[in-house]
Design a protein around this nucleic acid. Sequence first.
DNA 1: ACGGTTGGTACA
DNA 2: TTGTACCAA
Length: 694
Amino acid sequence: MPVAKPESSDASRVIAHVDMDCFYVQVEQRKQPNLRGLPTAVVQYNEWKGGGLIAVSYEARKYGVKRSMRGEEAKQVCPEIQLVQVPVARGKADLNTYRTAGSEVVSILARKGRCERASIDEVYLDLTDAAEKMLAEAPPENLEVVNEETLKSHILGLDNERGFDAKENVREWLCRKDADRRDKLLACGTLIVAELRMQVLKETEFTCSAGIAHNKMLAKLASGMNKPAQQTVVPFSSVKGLLDSLPIKKMKQLGGKLGSSLQSDLGVSTVADLLQFPEEKLQERYGFNTGTWLWNIARGISGEEVQGRLLPKSHGSGKTFPGPKALKTIASVQHWLNELCEELSERLRSDLDQNKRIARTLTLHASAYKSGVTDSQKNFPSKSCPLRYGTAKMQEDALNLFQAGLREFCGLHNTKPHGSRNNGWRVTGLSVSASKIVEKPSGTSSIMKYFHGQNPSSSLSKQSQDEDIQVPSASESCSEMNLSEQQMKFRGEDSNTMCQMPCLDQQEHKQDLGEDQNPSCLSPTQGQDDFQEASFSTSGIDPGTECCSGLINQSEQQRVFPQDQCVVSSLNRLEPKRKTMNDKGTNSILKFFKKMDPASSCSSNKEEHCENLRDVEALLSNPASVSENGRCVEERRERIAWSYNVDEIDPSVIKELPPEIQEEVRASFRPNKRPNIVRRGSSIAQYFLPTRKI
DNA sequence: ACGGTTGGTACA
DNA sequence: TTGTACCAA
């Protein structure tokens, strides 16, 4: 096993997590500035009990309004609440405005270091290099003035009781000459993040909160501690104090079943409780990787890298059909699949145009139940096939995938699917997604064309042909941009040809689609009621505060962190004196915010602001340019800044990078996850167990 | 038979 | 590789 390099330990890194405050609300408030400062919520579809809340402003939260309340409920609790509806397109929630707004933010946050888009409104930043550079060239200790926003930071473990002047304490902490180098690096990170957040505010009008720490887990934890529009720092020496009293369920990835299991099976209710368990025990119970991961996070260790990915890895479009809205006919399913595919296709087209990326797999997920059969809800299998570009093709493929799934589903319940009249199945959810997104190949030639025409797309259509050909040439439509190289190379290549094989038998539906070039033109005879009922049902999304990395991938080899480096040992003298500070009214960011508010009459600023606003809205108002503009910004940033993806980068390219960046690539620091082949309790497992004793 | 939609990851 | 399960918000 590789021995860890000390430099690569967590404590030498500067990681930030940035979290937009009730993002969807902010987006809507920017669009309607009169809503600023008012209790506001974004509601998804409105027909049933006022719709479901997916984002709630902090003003509204004071009244007890919560996400996942219905609109009517919210009105009861807070009669003056302003409810803004999510835009609807094709009978479902359309989140593109939020995606675009998210891209705006990412493009700013990626300026100072490697940036990972963790969700529509959250990013991680690796500011190690920038912090080191600052420390070397312009360390905080030399600063005469520290900007207000930075002084507003919350430093965990900093004793603010003594001196009354919290800001002065922060300033002292930031500028300490005799501070630990790790703290100095964090101090630099604190300055950088404050600056970035102010830039975000200035350029987008959005506030965000941030956490600055030595790894992703701690940064994420910290970013949620002081909201909105504030930032929180976790010095190395405060880690234990932070984690000790922390309920286990607050940890990312432990909010679900694993966390519950820890609680009920091991009696672990706080992170500190987890410390008693030897790694072996945890591995025994939860598997090698998860066990190691748990052991580490209990000690504040998480070697997860910031991924350097500014774009999503998949696109999806889905909708649920709850209760009486459940779909009962193939025709209604087809209708909705057509809608979903249309949206997905549009987004894929944008991704292709703006980012030159191609998705290779189409997956259909459905949920269904069979009337009379309990617990059949979950058994509808998901199906995937090679993704063919072109709306009509995706619609055709999606329907085929659905039919294949339906056959299995019905088989599972001893029924024959048969055509459109169904025997009891009800579809309560549909979603199509596109994954395995790769950059458009640059070196390929047009050999592919050779295979063109082999496509058994007997089921016609001008459309399919158009779309086929469009794939390569569509990139022309990308506005500005300097993509020429790749673009040129790709021209003439037909990415579709690789994906042309029919995924599933289409015997039953060829006909349907044959003359139906209008996707939503469903035979009006059947299923009509279905989508009438359903056509205005809810859908939408969460403003999300974050999401992203999946379970347990963070697992990390303990050897990377020799025990004497573990926070548990270095911090065990520290009292848990975590404090929450809410001087929210005095935030410099909030002040800035206030100035912009049309309600508060600050004219010069206001005008400048409105101008800004108009620009943005001008962009947004042209649907065709919406994503394009947003994405182009992103694209530009992507070239300029730091957004390489370590995993996907060509190894030969790495050598071209500056040494300090190369070091980022440090393959040697990849957490040593091991494939989970070995069964629990296997003696072979013992062989691999770490030698650490507890 | 309402928390929805989107997106991520791990594992068999 | 595909499909399932889980997680976050």
